[in-house]
Design a protein around this nucleic acid. Structure first.
Length: 242
DNA sequence: AATCATGACAACCGCCAAAAT
DNA sequence: GATTTTGGCGGTTGTCATGAT
């Protein structure tokens, strides 16, 4: 038996949203919150599929959205996150406040892909184009050795196998493989006192997010450099899945 | 001025996984 | 445990705006 439709398609509008529909949706969610998307359209008096309402709200109507052009810093952040996460747009969006997965996905396909190509970088593998034997490796062996003493080191290995689709699988007692990224990255808990099985949620301790991605230090950054190498040190466990 | 090509982005579709029954 | 329902995600398409010819 196939999956039943999420709504009665025969009686739903499609295509661009009107101002009135937007107003109804916003008014309803402001009054009742984001409840059940299936029942929302009827309750809000909208002839729309619940999924369509959800998408409209998340991608366009949410009050915390940051509209407007992406900054150069955001560009670089997206590129770095994409090199690590691949097309996990929702994860990437989770690290860019006010940006949606759809927006980032579109921006990637229309701008960043071209930007990387113009730099001679393959937007899929993040490696130089026409440089088959390219083998630029940033080694964190020294860092890893230090961290290994504390018993909690995961390392991304040279690509050999299928991509890990779910970052939550990383470091689960098996070799880590990142097929499209040739970086010998050390991923380690910035806060040693935190148990390894702790739920990966927002963190206060350890490297701040800017430092974890090698961005310039922010004014309130209290992180110290690790062997003089802040760049490419990324705490994957702080990447919130949902 | 008209037509065509391209870019940008909103919206849809189908699939998957988790939750509910 | 099996089945159904729902929310969420990534890929793709459709449409409008803009620039080039």
């Amino acid at each position: 038996m196939g999956r039943s439709p999420c709504c009665e398609k025969a009686h739903t509008n499609k295509g661009a949203w009107t101002k009135e529909e937007d107003d109804r949706l916003v008014a309803y969610i402001k009054a009742h919150g984001e409840g059940c998307w299936r029942s929302l359209p009827k309750a809000a008096g909208l002839l729309r599929c619940g999924k369509s309402c959800r998408l409209r709200w998340i991608n366009y109507l949410r009050p915390d959205l940051k509209r407007g052009n992406f900054t150069e810093e955001e560009d670089e952040l997206i590129i770095k996150l994409h090199s690590l996460l691949g097309n996990k747009w929702s994860l990437i969006a989770g690290r860019l406040p006010g940006r949606t997965d759809n927006e980032i996905k579109n921006y990637w396909n229309t701008h960043i892909r071209r930007k990387l190509l113009s730099r001679g970088i393959d937007p899929v593998s993040h490696r130089p184009i026409n440089e088959h034997a390219s083998n630029i490796t940033i080694s964190f062996e020294a860092a890893a050795a230090v961290r290994e003493e504390k018993g909690a080191v995961f390392r991304l290995e040279e690509p050999k196998a299928a991509p890990i689709s779910n970052p939550a699988d990383w470091g689960q007692g098996k070799p880590l493989k990142c097929p499209d990224l040739n970086l010998d990255l050390c991923i380690s808990p910035p806060c040693p006192e935190e148990p390894m099985n702790m739920k990966p949620v927002k963190r206060e301790a350890g490297l701040c997010f800017s430092c974890s991605l090698g961005l310039p230090k922010s004014a309130d950054c209290k992180c110290s450099s690790f062997l003089g190498l802040r760049t490419a040190m990324l705490d994957f466990r702080s990447l919130e899945m949902k």
